[in-house]
Design a protein around this nucleic acid. Structure first.
Lengths: 144, 144
DNA sequence: CAAAACTCGGATAAAATTATCCGAGTTAAC
DNA sequence: GTTAACTCGGATAATTTTATCCGAGTTTTG
């Protein structure tokens, strides 16, 4: 469904959110520990998220990553997925056709439009805040 | 969503179905032409489908691939996806956790279970015959 | 039986994705 | 101002996926 990079990105964002909602800043090592991901690869993903203003990075000692509290309810999963995996998952043809639309649909176009729209809807409706709350409350988990 | 191999497999199966429903046998070159795919890579996918009894292969001159007519309405997209991409797309965690279930769910577990179930439902309900009819009637297309 | 038209399957190559290495820059504490 | 704890980013390596090569076997036709 999502690339590994995107999976790490989503988990990292949720981990950062949980900390940020308590006013804590976290860092690469802590994040990678929380989500059980390769540190350096995760660093690349965090850089990408930082460049796209989804998180705020602070260099130097006691630095790390954080998300301003007022943003927690505004960032949605779809923003993260868009940043890392792009639009393809939302608009791409289920059979990989370069051009596939209502005018010249692939055999599964209509059935898949519905599934993709539903995915987009869920990702669009789900805020980071909501998911961070679940993790903080011990109801959901970011690693096995 | 699906791997390239699976995309080619699905398109190839639809192409073969369209021919088989008219009693025609087709072959690798024709299939790759129909679905605009790399010939040799498509050959590997067809071998896999053949070994798993989803299509029947005939060697030698005038050989090729075909699907017995009585199977056309029985083969569903889910059979093809299972053969090529496996179960992961149906059961795997949206965030890539090794273990993710109702007991120890990832933050998006419940929302994604619904999407995946819907995908499985669509793939399970869609027969090859149905899709081949659309292509034969010029309503849907297997290449750009 | 020779030639042509096919599939089969092992081997290799190319490309994309995932993962790691490491030197450099930034900041806080002492 | 030195050290420790960080992020940044270019370079490289490993792995997986996608694509191609090619010799061998099968079958039909003439």
């Amino acid at each position: 469904m999502f690339s590994k990079a995107c999976e790490y990105g989503l988990k990292a964002m949720i981990s950062i959110s949980a900390k940020s909602s308590r006013g804590e800043r976290t860092n690469l090592k802590e994040i990678a520990g929380d989500i059980d991901s390769p540190e350096q690869f995760t660093a690349k993903v965090l850089q990408q998220l930082s460049r796209n203003k989804l998180i705020h990075s602070v260099q130097g000692a006691y630095g790390g990553f954080e998300i301003p509290k007022d943003k927690l309810s505004k960032i949605r999963l779809i923003d993260i997925v868009r940043t890392i995996d792009g639009e393809k998952i939302f608009t791409g043809c289920g059979l990989g056709l370069e051009a596939c639309d209502a005018n010249r649909p692939c055999p599964i176009h209509h059935k898949f439009a519905e599934i993709r729209n539903n995915l987009a809807k869920v990702l669009n409706e789900t805020s980071l805040e909501e998911l961070a709350t679940g993790v903080t409350g011990g109801l959901t988990f970011l690693h096995r």
